[in-house]
Lab assay of single mutants.
Amino acid sequence: SLNIVTVTLNMERHHFLGISIVGQSNDRGDGGIYIGSIMKGGAVAADGRIEPGDMLLQVNDVNFENMSNDDAVRVLREIVSQTGPISLTVAKC
């Protein structure tokens, strides 16, 4: 069973999320979106629970499971540009 973790980040303390995301597209185009790298000083690094290779399932109320990489990057950028905490739900691989 997948270990699902939801992390809520206070964006007032850390001014950027600090992750890159990578799409693992397979033949069907539904390989999922994964955490690529984590930048020091960002909210994700400070929290420490999300790691490279984790699968990104949801951000706030947006489901990322069947999203293309381009869409995921765009949607994540829109969410980060808003104010307030950000909740990331990942599956630990």
Score class of each variant (00 low, 15 high):
residue 76 L to F: 12
residue 61 D to V: 02
residue 78 E to C: 09
residue 81 S to K: 13
residue 75 V to W: 04
residue 22 V to P: 07
residue 4 I to E: 10
residue 4 I to F: 10
residue 67 M to G: 03
residue 61 D to Y: 04
residue 33 I to V: 09
residue 69 N to I: 09
residue 79 I to G: 14
residue 3 N to I: 03
residue 56 L to V: 08
residue 10 N to D: 14
residue 4 I to N: 06
residue 11 M to T: 06
residue 59 V to K: 00
residue 77 R to M: 04
residue 70 D to E: 13
residue 65 E to P: 01
residue 2 L to P: 06
residue 3 N to K: 04
residue 18 G to T: 01
residue 29 G to T: 15
residue 57 L to H: 06
residue 83 T to Q: 06
residue 47 D to N: 15
residue 54 D to H: 01
residue 30 D to R: 07
residue 25 S to Y: 15
residue 26 N to I: 08
residue 8 T to L: 10
residue 72 A to K: 03
residue 85 P to D: 05
residue 82 Q to K: 10
residue 29 G to I: 12
residue 75 V to M: 15
residue 87 S to H: 06
residue 67 M to R: 07
residue 6 T to D: 06
residue 54 D to W: 02
residue 88 L to M: 14
residue 17 L to K: 01
residue 11 M to Q: 02
residue 3 N to P: 04
residue 73 V to P: 14
residue 86 I to Y: 05
residue 54 D to F: 02
residue 64 F to P: 02
residue 71 D to Q: 09
residue 29 G to W: 07
residue 61 D to A: 12
residue 67 M to C: 05
residue 30 D to H: 08
residue 88 L to C: 13
residue 22 V to Q: 14
residue 8 T to Q: 06
residue 62 V to F: 06
residue 17 L to C: 03
residue 23 G to K: 10
residue 87 S to N: 14
residue 1 S to R: 04
residue 17 L to T: 03
residue 60 N to G: 11
residue 36 G to S: 15
residue 63 N to C: 05
residue 30 D to V: 08
residue 84 G to I: 14
residue 78 E to V: 05
residue 92 K to W: 02
residue 81 S to I: 07
residue 11 M to I: 10
residue 13 R to Y: 12
residue 74 R to M: 14
residue 85 P to R: 12
residue 78 E to F: 10
residue 48 G to C: 04
residue 89 T to P: 00
residue 32 G to C: 04
residue 17 L to S: 00
residue 18 G to S: 00
residue 87 S to D: 12
residue 3 N to T: 03
residue 5 V to L: 05
residue 57 L to V: 10
residue 86 I to N: 07
residue 71 D to H: 07
residue 56 L to T: 01
residue 65 E to M: 12
residue 66 N to A: 09
residue 50 I to T: 08
residue 7 V to F: 05
residue 76 L to S: 11
residue 64 F to K: 01
residue 3 N to G: 08
residue 23 G to N: 15
residue 7 V to G: 00
residue 70 D to Q: 06
residue 57 L to I: 12
residue 11 M to F: 07
residue 64 F to D: 01
residue 61 D to M: 10
residue 54 D to V: 00
residue 47 D to H: 15
residue 7 V to N: 02
residue 23 G to L: 01
residue 74 R to F: 04
residue 61 D to I: 00
residue 86 I to P: 00
residue 56 L to D: 02
residue 71 D to T: 14
residue 68 S to D: 14
residue 38 I to V: 15
residue 76 L to C: 07
residue 30 D to M: 12
residue 89 T to Q: 14
residue 73 V to F: 04
residue 8 T to F: 06
residue 70 D to W: 05
residue 3 N to F: 03
residue 30 D to W: 06
residue 9 L to C: 12
residue 82 Q to P: 10
residue 87 S to F: 07
residue 59 V to S: 01
residue 9 L to T: 03
residue 8 T to G: 06
residue 22 V to D: 15
residue 92 K to F: 00
residue 81 S to V: 11
residue 90 V to N: 01
residue 6 T to E: 10
residue 30 D to Y: 04
residue 65 E to S: 10
residue 91 A to K: 15
residue 69 N to T: 13
residue 9 L to Y: 12
residue 13 R to T: 10
residue 79 I to V: 05
residue 92 K to Y: 09
residue 62 V to M: 12
residue 78 E to P: 05
residue 91 A to P: 00
residue 92 K to I: 00
residue 69 N to D: 14
residue 72 A to Q: 04
residue 93 C to L: 14
residue 32 G to S: 08
residue 3 N to D: 05
residue 74 R to D: 11
residue 77 R to D: 15
residue 66 N to L: 12
residue 1 S to T: 06
residue 86 I to H: 09
residue 89 T to K: 14
residue 79 I to W: 02
residue 64 F to A: 02
residue 29 G to C: 08
residue 3 N to W: 02
residue 22 V to C: 12
residue 77 R to K: 05
residue 77 R to P: 10
residue 84 G to R: 10
residue 66 N to R: 12
residue 88 L to K: 00
residue 34 Y to H: 03
residue 4 I to A: 03
residue 66 N to F: 08
residue 22 V to E: 08
residue 93 C to F: 03
residue 80 V to D: 11
residue 29 G to H: 13
residue 70 D to T: 09
residue 26 N to T: 15
residue 2 L to H: 11
residue 74 R to T: 08
residue 23 G to S: 13
residue 60 N to C: 06
residue 83 T to M: 07
residue 84 G to E: 15
residue 68 S to N: 13
residue 75 V to S: 14
residue 76 L to V: 06
residue 22 V to I: 13
residue 85 P to E: 08
residue 85 P to L: 14
residue 72 A to L: 01
residue 68 S to H: 11
residue 73 V to M: 10
residue 55 M to N: 13
residue 87 S to L: 09
residue 81 S to P: 13
residue 66 N to Y: 11
residue 2 L to N: 15
residue 76 L to I: 07
residue 57 L to M: 13
residue 79 I to D: 12
residue 55 M to Q: 09
residue 79 I to A: 05
residue 32 G to A: 11
residue 73 V to E: 15
residue 5 V to T: 10
residue 2 L to V: 04
residue 59 V to R: 00
residue 54 D to E: 01
residue 85 P to T: 14
residue 17 L to I: 13
residue 59 V to A: 05
residue 71 D to M: 06
residue 73 V to G: 13
residue 5 V to W: 09
residue 69 N to L: 06
residue 7 V to C: 11
residue 58 Q to P: 00
residue 75 V to G: 11
residue 32 G to V: 04
residue 70 D to A: 07
residue 12 E to V: 09
residue 13 R to E: 12
residue 83 T to I: 10
residue 18 G to L: 00
residue 65 E to A: 08
residue 13 R to S: 10
residue 91 A to S: 14
residue 18 G to V: 00
residue 60 N to P: 00
residue 31 G to E: 14
residue 83 T to F: 04
residue 82 Q to I: 06
residue 34 Y to N: 15
residue 30 D to A: 13
residue 32 G to Y: 04
residue 8 T to W: 03
residue 29 G to E: 14
residue 4 I to S: 06
residue 2 L to E: 10
